[in-house]
Simulated assay, not measured.
Amino acid sequence: MLGFMDYVQKAFLEASNWNQDNSYSTLTATAQALLDFETPRGLRLNVSSLASPKFASSYTIGTVGLVDGSLSYLYSSLPLEARFKSSEIDLHHVIQGYRQLQDLRQPDQSWWWEVWHKGKRVDRRDALLYGRLFLPQSTLEALYLRRLSPSRQLKVSAVSDARLPNGGTILTLLQNDFGKYSTEYLYSTDSALLGVRGLYNFGPDPRTATSQDVQAEPVYGRFSAGAELYYGLLNKSGGMSTGIRFTTLPQHTGFPYTMTLTLNPLMGNLSSTYAVKAGQNLALCSRFDFNFYSYESDLQLGCELWRRRGPDAEVEWASKMLRPDWERPAVRPDGDVAGVLKARVDQNWRAGVLWEGRIRELLFTLGTSFDLKRRDHIFRAVGVELQYST
């Protein structure tokens, strides 16, 4: 489940019309959400507040070994109007699961952002500032996010910790989204790392498509291909990867599904994923990894099952069983959910189970990971995380 500050940052990107899915870094986001979810350890409590549409604060305390916690503050120059109360947040917006990609949209024209007053331009670019202090380690992390233009944004993140080389690190990321394709350029002070990423979407170009084209030729799926290349100037080493993805779009009449294939030729890693939304409340996913240098392989399976709220669900089910001609009840809206159950298992019988949802005004995450091959110590981690926001 997304933390409160991550949810606020997501709301900022949505309010500034930035497409988070049109990036090579999110190529396998669906499989990662269904298979790579983290299970909490111990007990953790998060209390947050959006004091104004531009300012938010969050406080966290945990009990993993010694008592630890964090203080975080966020400022946004763009007023945020989304729902931030834990009792009102749509669970689909904070629980990461199957991601249904939408149609590519045409980027805004630069002159749309211009604001003139008495013959002078008075518009400013939206920005977000975020800082978090971890206690008792005294580790500080910060984020600066700025929209430079309708198709470009700058992201600078930093970590200050005496245990890190040079006392910390800074990562700068320049992102460009032109709809049809996207590019990213990054620089990190860690090993003076330089990198570039790119993603290209086959099919219609949203920059030239018209409303008549959309009505005449509906698009049911999208094929994308991308790659990344990075090189460390200090350690004289580099790397690269490439990948492809096919996913269905909302116009697709069958079950939504997503397929990806990624390759790291230098390390010899090949990974393929397949995720399908088998029903309104069920999603399934599989991932197969293979290394053609060592011939090692790995298989993972996962699923998510959403539970609808409503005390009359059992009564409706019993009525339909007793009377086959019973009228089918209307589908409940997506917001009418009580939580989601996630589960994963790999070929070595290492498994994880996660239950996320809401109890009254609290968002909760309950999870455990275990190893079925170790009879003496099956459970590896058990934890509960609670979130309350106003």
Rank of each mutant, 00 (worst) to 15 (best):
G3W: 14
F4N: 06
M5N: 12
M5S: 09
M5E: 08
V8T: 05
V8R: 10
V8F: 10
Q9P: 00
Q9G: 07
A11G: 03
A11P: 01
A11W: 01
W18P: 00
Q20E: 13
D21T: 05
N22G: 02
N22K: 02
S23F: 06
Y24C: 04
S25P: 00
S25L: 10
L27E: 02
T30H: 04
T30R: 07
T30C: 05
T30A: 10
Q32S: 13
L34M: 13
L35G: 01
L35E: 05
E38Y: 10
T39M: 10
T39W: 02
T39G: 08
P40R: 13
R41P: 00
G42I: 03
L43R: 07
R44G: 07
L45Y: 13
S48M: 13
S49P: 02
S49F: 11
A51M: 12
P53Y: 14
P53A: 13
K54T: 08
K54D: 02
A56K: 11
A56R: 08
S57W: 11
T60L: 15
I61G: 08
I61M: 15
T63Y: 14
V64A: 15
V64Q: 15
G65W: 10
L66P: 02
V67S: 14
V67K: 08
D68I: 08
G69Q: 12
G69K: 10
G69M: 14
S70F: 10
S70I: 07
Y73A: 15
L74T: 05
S76H: 07
S77M: 05
L78P: 00
P79C: 11
P79I: 08
A82H: 14
R83Y: 08
R83G: 09
S87I: 03
I89G: 02
D90T: 04
D90C: 06
H92Y: 13
H93Q: 12
I95P: 03
Q96L: 12
Q96M: 09
G97A: 13
G97I: 01
Y98E: 01
Y98W: 06
Y98C: 02
Q100T: 01
Q100S: 08
Q102D: 09
Q102P: 00
R105F: 01
R105Y: 01
Q106Y: 00
Q106F: 00
Q109I: 02
Q109D: 13
S110G: 00
W111S: 01
W113I: 00
E114G: 03
E114I: 09
V115L: 09
W116P: 00
K118Q: 14
K120D: 06
K120T: 04
V122K: 12
V122W: 11
D123R: 05
D123T: 06
D123V: 02
D123E: 11
R124S: 11
R125W: 07
D126W: 04
A127K: 05
L129T: 00
L129Y: 06
G131F: 13
R132H: 14
R132I: 08
F134Y: 14
F134A: 07
L135V: 11
S138C: 06
S138A: 13
T139H: 12
